[in-house]
Amino acid sequence: MISCEESTFLSSKHQHVKPSFGERIKQFMHLLMCVYCRRFSNQIQQIDKAIHNLNKNAVEANIKLTTQQKQKMEELLQNSSKH
């Protein structure tokens, strides 16, 4: 039986790569009996999903530079081209 430390390690890793067959069995057995690691696994999945959605929303929001920001950049560019 794997420990909670190992189980949470696998939960984190499997956010990025597919579990091996052995890992899946070990993880399944542990999560079956451990409510804390079940929570951990669910909650980090929620966090990752929220980050993914924030990313998506940011792209859809189509954020543009303000006039002020544009002016600042223009000034900087002009100054640098003088040198």
Binding site: T8, F9, S12, Q15, I47
Partner: peptide
């Protein structure tokens, strides 16, 4: 993997 594990523990 170790870093991501630790980071997630602390973040959560």
């Amino acid at each position: 993997w170790v870093i991501l594990h630790r980071a997630r523990l602390q973040l959560r």
